[in-house]
């Protein structure tokens, strides 16, 4: 459905994209995960044909988006990162305007506006100016405006930044519904929970490069990220810490906690507990942190995802 081939883009001397390539299948939920400034928005802007790459190619449904921009634009809906709405117009007026730009017939558009307003729980506020909306409500209309022409592909560029939990949950439900209806979704975020929840496949982008790509399980396996056993002790002292560190090198000590890193949790957990007891340390609590996108990202880039 979407083929990205060796995209490169520089702003003056800064290389924003250093040759990005990936493919997205029809109906797939693809996540572009990376910290701020990694190149996510630049990639989405190029895929939406509003930014020209220095080199590379974007094929949407087999059409090059630069030679056939209108064919591509008609099947794409873009949810921009910023709330791109006219604040002095009502929600309904905004939807009429944005839907009208895709030449949706008037009667059909009216029906779709009613549908999206219901879907996003804003039917009762449809006649209110967007300026009177909360941040979460604005986010919902921002997404709704991208769906009126019933696109086959939706690019969502960090659509849940800075919103309340109620709106976030509602948006999540809508996104899942759209995906279950067969919509191809490209989702950029720096929230790992969102990527873990929605994405069939994830591309991790950093410094303008895709540094890893695959399903969540594939990423976990391919990375050197280890699971963490966090043990809290009673009366931990330097002598006990030294004894524990002598049998388990790959660990860190802070206050009354020791972090043990392992790639084989099932086998190593009982061994660690036993040796801690042998060292005379009194275990108060054990916590297990499994490998997630955050740790995968950390192991791949050496950076926190929200850096």
């Amino acid at each position: 459905m979407i083929a990205i081939k060796d995209l490169k883009k520089s702003y003056n001397s800064h290389e924003a994209l250093k040759g990005i390539s990936f493919n997205i299948k029809e109906g797939e939920f693809y996540g572009l995960l990376g910290p701020n400034g990694a190149g996510k928005t630049t990639t989405i802007s190029i895929m939406s044909s509003i930014l020209t790459p220095d080199s590379g190619e974007v094929l949407i449904n087999g059409n090059n988006i630069y030679t056939h921009p209108n064919e591509s634009k008609r099947i794409i809906g873009v949810v921009p990162q910023e709330i791109a709405l006219y604040n002095e117009l009502t929600a309904e007026e905004n939807l009429w305007f944005w839907g009208g730009l895709y030449d949706v017939p008037k009667t059909e558009l009216k029906k779709r506006i009613d549908e999206v307003l219901t879907l996003f729980g804003l039917s009762e506020r449809r006649k209110d100016k967007v300026s009177t909306y909360s941040g979460g409500m604005k986010r919902r209309i921002n997404i709704a405006a991208a769906l009126l022409h019933q696109p086959r592909i939706v690019f969502m560029d960090e659509p849940t930044v800075g919103i309340d939990p109620q709106s976030r949950n509602l948006i999540f439900e809508v996104i899942e519904k759209l995906h279950s209806n067969g919509m191809t979704i490209v989702y950029t975020t720096h929230y790992m929970e969102e990527a873990e929840r929605f994405c069939d496949r994830i591309g991790i982008i950093d410094n303008g490069q895709i540094i890893a790509e695959g399903t969540l399980d594939e990423l976990r396996k391919s990375s050197s990220a280890k699971e963490t056993i966090v043990i809290t002790f009673n009366n931990l002292n330097d002598d006990k810490v030294q004894k524990i560190q002598s049998f388990w090198k790959d660990c860190n000590h802070t206050d009354d906690k020791i972090y043990f890193y392992t790639s084989d949790l099932k086998t190593e957990l009982s061994k660690i507990i036993s040796q801690c007891s042998d060292a005379g340390a009194d275990i108060h609590n054990i916590e297990i942190k499994k490998v997630n996108l955050e740790t995968v990202f950390l192991s791949l880039t050496g950076k926190q995802l929200r850096d």
């Binding site: 634009k73 008609r74 921009p80 990162q81 944005w98």
Partner: peptide
Amino acid sequence: QEGTLKRLLYTPM
């Protein structure tokens, strides 16, 4: 500045 121009550019217009 408000991003609506960018959004207009996403459309086939």
